[in-house]
Every structure is written in structure tokens, then in C-alpha cells.
């Protein structure tokens, strides 16, 4: 039981360190993608994938 626990804990602590070091997350609230170069000159042309308010 304790050997399993140690193995499991090694995985969890490894995940904990990786999340901190590499910025991994399980709640991905953002999306990253390429946009046209002209957006800075014409901000209204960009269409975020988030749509609508209330």
C-alpha cells in the first residue's frame, strides 16, 4: 500500500512541479491562435471566438 502511495505521490508531485514550471493548467480559459497582421491597425476586424454577453 505504501509503495503504491509513494509511486502515486511521485506522479502527483511531478505533475505539481510541471504545472508550475511549464505553466500547465487543467482549466484552459483562453485559446491561442494566429490572427491577421492588420488587427492592430483595424481592431474592429478581429472576431474573438468568444461571442455574446448576457
Amino acid at each position: 500500500m505504501s509503495k503504491f502511495y509513494i509511486g502515486w505521490a511521485a506522479l502527483v508531485l511531478g505533475l505539481f512541479c510541471a504545472m508550475n514550471l511549464f505553466g500547465w493548467t487543467i482549466t484552459d480559459e483562453h485559446e491561442d491562435h494566429q490572427i491577421p497582421k492588420s488587427i492592430r491597425d483595424n481592431p474592429g476586424a478581429y472576431r474573438s471566438h468568444y461571442t455574446g454577453g448576457k
Partner: peptide, 17 residues
């Protein structure tokens, strides 16, 4: 309702929120 993007000025990669 604020649609928000962090955009890289050279690569044009955008992070949407």
C-alpha cells in the same frame, strides 16, 4: 461583456479571453 485578446506584435499569436 469584454472580449479580450493578448496579441504578440510580431508573431500575431493571440490569447483570447
Amino acid at each position: 461583456y469584454l472580449k479580450l485578446a493578448l496579441i504578440h506584435a510580431e508573431t500575431h499569436e493571440a490569447y483570447d479571453f
